[in-house]
Amino acid sequence: MAQVPVAEGVFTWPSDAPALIGSRCVACGNHMFPVQSGCPKCSGDSTETVTLGRRGTLWTWTIQGFPPKAPPYAGDADPKTFRAFGVGYVELPGEVKVEARLTESDPEKLKIGMEMELVIVPLSTDENGDEVVTFAFAPVA
């Protein structure tokens, strides 16, 4: 079974140290995720593609407690087998806060300010039988 990313150009994969792919404004240095062509900070029209930092701190979080509608959700949306998952914004120092799934879904174990690291996690199986993967942040042990 092969692993395929949920989309090309969102994170580096395959990789031993996967990173999100974003943009940096050539004019003002503002970082954005995902890749985009214009800068919302200075209205500049020139950006370069960069890989973002892999570690950051948890800025805020929630727990997705009910199955998202499918489509668009590609993961398990069956109410009988759905498992709650964490969602949060992770502040990547000097860059940007990115929204992501979290590997932790226990409110007792999530704290604003905790160290997080990017990981790649399974999401679903596609029609070819391949495993679709997406990005998430995991607490740094």
Partner: peptide, 25 residues
């Protein structure tokens, strides 16, 4: 991008949970 919804992130409810969670903190 489609990946945003397929990854389980495109829910307005998540934003509201995250905004008030930060605010409470």
């Amino acid at each position: 991008g489609d990946w945003y919804g397929s990854s389980g992130l495109a829910l307005t409810t998540q934003f509201f949970g995250m905004k008030i969670n930060r605010y409470m903190h």
